[in-house]
Amino acid sequence: MKVFAIGSIRQALTPEQRQRIMPKEVPDTLKLYLDGTIEQFWFRDDPATPGVIFLMNVESVDHAKAAVDALPLTAEGLMSFDLLSVGPLAPLRLLLQ
């Protein structure tokens, strides 16, 4: 199943938070990428709502939630994620009739 995980930073990180959390956040995110849970990732290019977008390859939305909830920024309440399951564009089947 594919899930878009759309992450939003809830508040700007202080220099102390950045120094303490980011050395854990980056390797944890890379582990999810290397194990195939995160298939692609992007930085949100919107200054009003900074964050990330992950395209995840997971068994369920609950699995995606557990993965992003374990990331340090989310665990500390500094980031939240909206999860959106997606699939093939089913109406295209009408073109095959």
Rank of each mutant, 00 (worst) to 15 (best):
D35A: 10
L30D: 10
L94R: 05
F41D: 15
M22H: 10
V52T: 12
L83G: 04
P72T: 06
L78W: 08
F43E: 13
T74C: 06
K2G: 01
G7V: 15
M1V: 10
L89E: 07
D45N: 01
F4R: 02
T74A: 13
I21D: 08
S60E: 12
F43K: 11
P15S: 05
D82K: 05
M79W: 00
P23D: 02
P47W: 08
S80V: 15
D82M: 05
G36V: 07
Y33W: 06
F81G: 04
L73G: 02
P47D: 07
A90W: 08
L34I: 07
D28K: 03
I53P: 02
I9M: 11
L71C: 03
K24A: 15
Q17P: 00
V52P: 00
F81S: 05
P47F: 07
A66L: 07
E59C: 01
L32M: 12
L78D: 05
I53W: 02
A90S: 10
D46H: 07
R93Y: 11
N57I: 15
L13Q: 07
E39Q: 10
L83E: 05
D82P: 02
L96A: 15
R93W: 11
F4H: 04
S85F: 01
L94W: 02
F4S: 02
D28I: 00
D82F: 03
A70G: 09
S60Y: 10
Q19V: 15
Q97M: 12
A12K: 14
V26S: 03
V3Y: 03
E76C: 00
R93D: 12
T14N: 01
Q11C: 14
L83P: 09
L13W: 05
T29C: 09
E25Y: 08
